[in-house]
């Protein structure tokens, strides 16, 4: 008698199609979890409607994991606020500052994609991770704390509900998010070398600090 053998090491179903606009994201079969996964880097975001896991590694950056809790459509972003003069000063981050504007966009892009794919704003569930104090050369600023402050402020402003969070601290985190169920696995990277996380975030910080964020403008005839 023949048995169909399913193994977490081998996919037994085809990879879901990447949503429109997300073909540049690194997607693969994750043998450890036995699920298709999408791995996002600083500055990227991804949404899944087909049961994929979304993975990222965070230092001082923040990831918001957002989903429609009834429809299982959700995604994750990965961003940090640019370092502007105003957030060198300790104290409350102005919601209207240049850096908060950058954060608003990172959040809005993610939320819009979820809504476009069938999510309902009233049913959004948000979980937040990251914001560690791990960028050594910026330790006097603690950009991680600013990132946490920003995301809290955004959630309050938008009337969203924060279902869970694991933020701050000294260690980078690996975050595995399952938008279909809302479940999250977080591993603190205490023992591994964190040079890669650090270098990636440094390079991303340089990009966003030196490039003014601005989209195209087109006037029709």
């Amino acid at each position: 008698m023949k048995h169909s053998v399913t193994s977490q090491f081998q996919p037994s179903y085809p990879q879901p199609k990447a949503p429109k606009g997300f073909t540049h994201i690194n997607r693969y079969w994750d043998k450890q979890q036995g699920v298709y996964a999408a791995k996002i880097l600083p500055g990227q975001f991804y949404i899944s409607t087909g049961g994929e896991m979304i993975v990222t590694v965070l230092g001082s950056c923040i990831s918001a994991c957002v989903r429609d809790r009834y429809r299982g459509i959700g995604g994750m972003n990965h961003f940090m606020l640019p370092v502007q003069r105003e957030n060198l000063d300790p104290g409350v981050l102005s919601a209207l500052s240049e850096s908060a504007r950058y954060g608003n966009w990172a959040m809005e892009y993610l939320i819009n994609e979820i809504l476009k794919n069938g999510g309902d704003k009233r049913h959004l569930e948000v979980k937040v991770f990251g914001g560690g104090k791990v960028l050594e050369s910026m330790s006097q600023i603690d950009i991680g704390r600013k990132n946490i402050e920003f995301v809290h402020q955004f959630i309050t402003n938008e009337g969203l509900s924060l279902a869970a969070e694991d933020v701050g601290g000294l260690f980078p985190r690996k975050v595995l998010y399952f938008p279909d169920t809302g479940s999250v696995k977080v591993r603190k990277l205490k023992t591994v070398r964190n040079d890669v996380v650090f270098e990636r975030e440094q390079s991303y910080a340089r990009t966003i600090n030196n490039t003014p964020a601005q989209g195209d403008i087109e006037l029709f005839d």
């Binding site: 504007r101 966009w105 003014p212 601005q214």
Partner: peptide
């Protein structure tokens, strides 16, 4: 529409 501005805006 008269024009199209892609966020983020300056």
């Amino acid at each position: 529409a008269t024009g199209w501005i892609v966020k983020p805006f300056n």
